[in-house]
Design a protein around this nucleic acid. Sequence first.
DNA 1: GTCAGTGCAAACTTTTTGCAACTAC
DNA 2: GTAGTTGCAAAAAGTTTGCACTGAC
Lengths: 160, 160
Amino acid sequence: MEKDNVNSTVRQIFTEYLRQKGYRKTAERYAILDTVYSIDGHFDIDSLLAKMVEEGRIRVSRATLYNNIILLKDAHLIIKHQFGAASQYERSYNRSMHHHLICTQCGKVVEFQNQELQKAIQDTKLKGFHLSYYSLYIYGLCGKCYRMNKKKEITNKKKK
Amino acid sequence: MEKDNVNSTVRQIFTEYLRQKGYRKTAERYAILDTVYSIDGHFDIDSLLAKMVEEGRIRVSRATLYNNIILLKDAHLIIKHQFGAASQYERSYNRSMHHHLICTQCGKVVEFQNQELQKAIQDTKLKGFHLSYYSLYIYGLCGKCYRMNKKKEITNKKKK
DNA sequence: GTCAGTGCAAACTTTTTGCAACTAC
DNA sequence: GTAGTTGCAAAAAGTTTGCACTGAC
């Protein structure tokens, strides 16, 4: 199965990372990694903890989650986003690059892919800077909120 | 003078925004706007407050800053970023669009411009979504940190 | 005069830290 | 055995909120 392959590969990558850095291989670390790779989209620390409890994995503390999220980020196995107050994360291995549409009204985040855009960004010359990854956030109004605002405008005009 | 023009234009925009929303024109609001438009790059709430004190403007409270930053954002006069813990802002009227290079090691943020990239993003078809503005964050290593890491690698290899 | 806006302090949220207990090596 | 890791609780950092006072309209 494709998914099992990914899981075992990221475990290998993580193991190698831990070895290389001299960090210990703890059950907590692998439980966190497995859970992260069982989540499809974005998640925050709270929902990650909730998912671990839900799946009946070993219970880890919030502090341990925060500590190890840093390692996963450092090992390039997750990407960190900061849309709102709480940091959001997403797994990054074997996940196609995508961009984010963020509605400034309802806060909804939608992912979208665009090969040309991707290529344009990756091909950009960045004298002296060594690209690791990137995030493109496009802010605006989603279709729903746009239509809602238009309706409001019409109503307001009628009032006057 | 170019700068004075910008200042008076954003004041007009802000005044119209306040009028339209039914908000009051307070001295604090204009002092905040003026200070924001006297800062060239990014700033956070703390440095904005510091700048207002430094310039001898009327002293506003942190709460008032937070309240009014929201209005400025809503009036499209500033853009909000979230690089690290504290939110960062920058004035947006009459400021050319740019992208951000963020060093994952030292945290340094550098702005850069690229017309082609800009065009590619703005021309992207976003079915149903109405673009207002966007932020591109490119993460990686700045030249300095890249060289530093390379040196370290060589040293480590010698040790072994 | 009225009510939105302000300043202050307290509350709240997210993340980090100190420390004793635990465990991978 | 010992140092890295964990869990807990306390602390820190950033932001929001409640409330009495002030001032724009």
